[in-house]
Write a protein that binds this DNA or RNA. Structure first.
Lengths: 231, 231
DNA sequence: CGAAAGGTTGAGTTCCGTCAAGTGTGGTGG
DNA sequence: CCACCACACTTGACGGAACTCAACCTTTCG
């Protein structure tokens, strides 16, 4: 774990993260209580059961929020993209593990100090409220995906969601991108097995709807068909 | 739809809803822009595609937030209990239908006026942030439930969740309560079919874990077994 | 270069969805 | 008050989709 002081001026999410709602001097005050932290893929940022003394904004990379049942099966409840906020401001302890999907940079704060900033800066509370609403929306989109009966629909929906996350505007889907998830993580997200994910992906390839470039690279050849499988 | 002026003093959720964070005079100002509305079971409170000009706090009863695929299959993404808040403050239009599961009373506000109140009263923003966090938590609990491979685990988990909602403290589970959901709604929530829900319920009865009192009444005989099926 | 992790493919089995018939149950009107 | 109807729920038989187990292949990294 590496800590360095904040440099908001050059921050890639400076006008999308919650802190972007603040006035320059307010953001300066927030910057004083925050630190940068870098984590490697696979590293746990916060662990379930921790006293949740920290919270953070993701600057770059990607995170997963997950829990593990007693057989060790991973169940992912959310993905976090840059400008996303993680950590509980109200609950006494973290409910889920938060793990880096890729090498990532975060801006971390002590929960108490951040809470105090939320009290002091109403604009920060409103910005977090907005983010929280977006997270809830994402969360419901995932529920919608998992509610599908067919595995092909789930996989197709996930590809579209990941494509949307890869493009910078949330409306359109990147045509070619790298999957940020292993097959196991895709399975954990969709509530199916690794083997089924693999089989449905090869089915989509055989039907000419997608193309694989190596294990992680993916190209969408026929977006309308993909949409058709989801609805 | 019946509209009446607000009477916060006698409101059953006056110290749990978002507005409870306000000072008396602030709450008075909020009360002036709100109206009561009653809805019957099955009635749609807000419809998907609406311009989302309204938001509301649920006073009594219960709501579901759902969408419907092109075959008409219902997919429920959330249940709303008293003191819950519904409506989008930021998104331009409603994404889901919001339907009454039981006869319900709401306290409704114009979105614009409520937004203005959120700007004016920072405590309201923080209270909504807290609620939003709780909704997110519920939402993730549902994802966790839906991620289970076995239908028996899903049904068991749902019974425990409904039992927790029926008892007034969120920690312990009511031993005997009425299911607020039809089999079809339980199926829509869990991503399985009506028939499977029915079969798993009778299985639980045969194993002596629960007891049915009429179609809706339910008694938990062996809570530890139920917990065991979930984990 | 070799090991380990991640990914694919196949065969067999189980579980759930589908279709269909039948049994309550609550509400309305004769 | 009871008959009837609509709706919700249950149960059964069957087929197919997904899981399990196992072997094999590919990519990555020390």
């Amino acid at each position: 774990m590496a800590n360095t002081a904040l440099q908001c001026e050059s921050c890639p999410v400076r006008d999308r993260a919650a802190c972007s709602a603040l006035q320059p001097d307010e953001r300066g005050q927030l910057a004083e209580i925050g630190r940068h932290r870098t984590v490697r893929r696979g590293e746990t940022v916060f662990a379930a059961g921790d006293d949740s003394a920290w919270c953070a904004t993701l600057i770059s990379g990607a995170l997963k929020i997950a829990s593990y049942d007693n057989e060790g099966t991973e169940r992912i409840v959310s993905l976090v993209h840059p400008a996303g906020f993680v950590g509980e401001l109200f609950a006494p302890m973290a409910q889920h593990d938060i793990v880096a999907l890729a090498d990532s940079r975060l801006c971390i704060f002590s929960r108490n100090q951040y809470s105090a900033a939320v009290e002091r800066f109403p604009a920060l509370a409103r910005a977090l409220l907005r983010r929280s609403g977006e997270e809830l929306f994402e969360s419901r989109a995932l529920i919608d995906l998992m509610g599908r009966r067919s595995s092909i629909g789930r996989v197709a929906g996930l590809i579209l969601a990941l494509g949307r996350a890869a493009s910078h505007s949330p409306c359109d889907v990147a045509q070619s991108f790298d999957l940020p998830l292993t097959r196991g993580e895709m399975a954990g997200l969709l509530g199916i097995t690794i083997e089924t994910v693999s089989r449905r992906l090869t089915e989509l390839v055989q039907r000419g709807i997608i193309k694989k470039n190596g294990a992680r690279g993916l190209e969408i050849l026929d977006a309308p068909s993909l949409e058709g499988l989801v609805r």
